[in-house]
Amino acid sequence: MNEWVLITGASGEIGAAVAKKTAASGKNVYVHYFNNIENARVVKKECELFGVKVKIVQADLSEASGVPTLLAQLDTPPSTIIHNSGKSYVGLLTDMDNDFIAKMVQLQLTSPMQLTKALVPPMVQQKQGDILVISSIWGLTGASCEVVYSAVKGGLNTFVKALAKELAPSNIRVNGVAPGAIETKMLQFFKDEDKRLMQEDIPLGRLGKPEEVADVVQFLLSENASYIHGQIISVNGGWFC
């Protein structure tokens, strides 16, 4: 198998879990990172244990220059794109710096659209490909004190639904996964008591694991999900259903 999969934000917990399960399926992996080269190297090494090719690519997707920087490092066009880069902010909208808002929009909405625009033509020519977006439960329900994050993730969810209709005639599947509360560094802003109360509010009574998100990603990319298209699957333990 000579398929390449591009995973943005692959140095983070969810991205790393997705990368390893992708490698386990026999596909080559582009491991994208921004500033955590150590984690990216660990992910590369773990993916290579499955006998696939792995290339680390670096770009700051919160900047307009990030997309062309990333594209220049892709030797072979990927047959699958997994948009996973993301950054949260907990606080009032009125306290957010406008430049930071612009970076969040660029990172989590503009860059994914621009990357997709650049990488879709080869997929259309071959009548084959997958595009998968990791959004958030807040993109479905919205969250106080995470207004911009909710907005960009909601934009990604609608991007999935619209693009799915556009690319369906080319046999390119487009879906999204919206994680709930997952055990990642993104929860570092919350105090232990807040996380305890959060878990009590989740019907399953616990936080999710990055591997559980990655399992859903792999399912959506498999032939077992061949008729699932334009959907946002929320991995949330029954939270905010």
Score class of each variant (00 low, 15 high):
Lys55Cys: 01
Phe190His: 01
Gly155Trp: 15
Ala168Gly: 14
Val160Arg: 02
Leu107Arg: 01
Ala59Cys: 12
Asn39His: 15
Ser11Arg: 11
Ala168Trp: 13
Tyr33Phe: 07
Asn36Val: 02
Ile233Met: 13
Val42Leu: 14
Pro179Asp: 05
Ser136Lys: 02
Asn35Gln: 06
Gln106Phe: 10
Gly9Val: 09
Pro112Thr: 01
Val43Tyr: 09
Asn171Leu: 14
Ser65Leu: 11
Val42Met: 15
Glu63His: 12
Gln199Ile: 00
Asp75Gln: 13
Pro203Asp: 08
Lys185Cys: 07
Pro77His: 11
Gly66Ala: 01
Ser65Glu: 10
Ala164Asp: 04
Val213Glu: 00
Ala40His: 12
Gly129Lys: 05
Pro169Leu: 04
Lys117Ser: 09
Ile134Gly: 05
Val105Phe: 06
Leu220Val: 08
Val29Pro: 07
Val160Met: 04
Ile172Val: 11
Thr110Ser: 14
Thr22Lys: 04
Ile134Asp: 00
Pro210Cys: 11
Gly9His: 14
Gln128His: 14
Gly9Asp: 04
Leu109Met: 10
Lys21Asp: 09
Ile233His: 07
Thr8Pro: 06
Tyr227Gln: 03
Thr8Trp: 06
Gly238Glu: 03
Pro77Trp: 15
Ala164Met: 04
Asn224Trp: 15
Gly26Met: 01
Phe240Ala: 12
Gly91Asn: 01
Glu3Ser: 07
Ala16Leu: 07
Val124Asp: 05
Met123Ala: 03
Asp60Met: 03
Gly208Trp: 02
Asp130Ile: 10
Asn171Gln: 15
Asn171Ser: 01
Gly155Phe: 05
Leu49Tyr: 15
Ser234Val: 11
Asn175Gly: 00
Ile134Thr: 05
Leu107Lys: 08
Ser79Tyr: 12
Pro121Asp: 08
Leu204Gln: 01
Gly86Glu: 01
Val148Ala: 01
Lys209Ala: 03
Asp95Lys: 13
Val152Gly: 11
Ser222Gln: 10
Ala178Met: 04
Leu221Tyr: 07
Ile37Thr: 13
Leu115Gly: 11
Leu71Asp: 00
Glu223Gly: 10
Tyr149Gln: 10
Glu146Val: 08
Asp75Cys: 15
Glu3Gly: 05
